[in-house]
Design a binder for these strands. Structure first.
Lengths: 203, 203, 203, 203
DNA sequence: CATGAATGAGGCTTCATTCAT
DNA sequence: CATGAATGAAGCCTCATTCAT
């Protein structure tokens, strides 16, 4: 009755859905996936509860849509890097990191982030979505590294992602940490990961 | 170790509390802080709901106790490092990482981990607990680095913590990643963070 | 008549609310404000518990609505007196007292009455409602006395109200008291309060 | 197992009971008969819950004891009047009213008062206690009036009791009423009830 | 005489979801 | 396309009472 995938491709419908996703995201950020109620979300959309169910047949589906939207946004961050000439990758990536961290009020989007990770541990559908998205991003990033002539791209990718996955948790556990100081530490690491042989000796 | 108030120090009471915390942790891991019900927790403890409230006056308080227990466990991991002779720190730390990752079924304890981080975003008490604990661990770790004669201990600490905070998220998003391969990547990073100047040029 | 907030003025909604108030009143009379359960009230309304909360957001609010309804009914008793020509006030008031006491099964509505007074001692909102209503009734009654040319209207009002406030308690503590006998005693008192100088010497 | 009447007449036991009644009264005044919990009462007594049940086999029984204690106190107020010479009754009663109202912080003891009346409506045992006590007091008061040579003692008694039963409700609904002004009104009324023919024409 | 651990039914309230209009 | 009335299970928590120690 309500296909997650084969939704009608009416433009109005899609626009409405996007608006709802945006509102729901706000509620989820404020109260968590389990703390936010469907009626509160409906109210935030200026919409009746019943009508909400015309667009999303269950809360589960709405959560998935919100998660997917966030994953898409995360993937978009690679677009810029892909448009760079390969030889400038290392330097520009580091600069980009600096820009994001210094000129962004909420650089890590921690709220939805942890909500998603927590949910993924109990909800296989969400877990799969994260994993599929991660594979896409890894592949794209690996391709970037390869085009830049960097060796061992998988390992470097994994390393970089581990790093950036850790930053949101650090922001929560150590919020008074100065951004500038963090940037000073991160930039050389990024450059190293992008450009320099990081394993001295192989077994 | 962490009394919310001046709890009576009856030994039986404390033992019971610890048992409840253990059971509750299991339920929270299975269903999340908000998904696990007090009655299910009581059942898991072999106890009536009402009686649960003789030990924890609210779900909130029980969650805090579980969180504190996990934080204490995390802090304990530093104990071993502190018992090492300073000059062996770098090498032993790397070896310890390897041991943990390779010989442990659930090395990251991701479940409670993310549940805590997600909760910390809406629950100031939990957030504070994480931050207080983080400060403690940072200070202890810095002291280790200083005793080992390493410069810029704060930055190195932050870097290392970012790294290890990222691993759980990586495990969720990229579960098929081979542990051995990950270890191969991590060990040199750890060594570098422990021992080597990581900033080539200072401004 | 007494909106807690700016309730929507949907007629259906208001009718339903009134029905619920009536049913709740019945339950409160039978079991008291604290003895009556929301689920029993819902059942008495032929309604699910959850739905009750679409009309009253808490038991507290429902209690307030029931109290206000009773207070409004009490105030209505003045309507008739106000429609009388001033010179007939004394005689008609006494006759009215007789009518109420003799031709009414439950002339004092003691049940809700004492429930309200008991509740007012712990619930400031209820206390305030009683006091506001009392002021309104006193003012209206004073105006009546003034229009009838009676002196010292405030004191007479207070006296009369003390009297009639005492009757419900008497009915409870002395239920076998004959009504007719009581009326014989009351009528001259009422007449005296309405018409005759009751203080022999004024300062 | 636990006789309400034939309790052991051990002096210690009785003293303890009296202490508990005093503490329970405090709790009942603060939270009402239904709002006060047995464990809170036990705590107020510095006693364990279980032990409380050695003195009162149920909450119901405790409530009854508290009610009886209050009724006994009310009856005691007649003692003084009974010790007066009959001819001074009218004047002294009025003066006594004045003394009570002007030199007493809580002259009406409204809290327990209304709690009792509300409870009496649903609890036949309590109702009976009030009624038995009321009969005793009426009889004693009638005897006083008769000894003072006053006619129609029953009616006068009922009238006076109605008056004084109304004052607590007035105190709740019109708390800002000045005491002095009230006394000025009451004193002549009391005198009239005690001493003067109040019905102009008898049938 | 005294404790407090233990029970489990019942309290108020919220929730995702459905359906008649 | 849109509403909001309606459901009832489940949520957290409190209570009077009992019983082993």
């Amino acid at each position: 009755m309500a296909d997650t995938a084969t939704q009608k491709i009416s433009p109005k419908h899609e626009i409405r859905r996007a608006q709802i996703i945006a509102c729901a995201e706000g509620e989820f950020e404020k109260h968590g996936f389990h703390g936010a109620g469907m009626s509160a979300i409906a109210k935030a959309c200026g919409m009746s509860v019943g009508h909400l169910y015309h667009y999303f047949s269950s809360k589960e589906e709405l959560i998935q849509a919100v998660v997917q939207a966030e994953l898409d946004r995360q993937a978009c961050r690679l677009d810029e890097l892909e448009s760079l000439p390969p030889e400038m990758l290392a330097s520009d990536a580091a600069r980009k990191v600096e820009t994001i961290l210094m000129h962004n009020d909420n650089p890590y989007r921690t709220v939805l982030n942890f909500e998603m990770l927590a949910e993924a541990q109990r909800n296989p559908k969400i877990a799969q979505m994260l994993q599929v998205n991660d594979k896409l991003m890894r592949d794209r990033f690996c391709a970037l590294l390869i085009s830049a002539g960097v060796d061992e791209p998988e390992d470097r990718t994994e390393l970089l992602l581990a790093f950036f996955s850790g930053l949101p948790a650090r922001a929560l556990r150590h919020p008074e940490q100065e951004r500038q100081s963090l940037v000073d530490v991160l930039v050389p690491v990024v450059e190293k990961i992008f450009g320099e042989p990081f394993r001295k000796t192989e077994t």
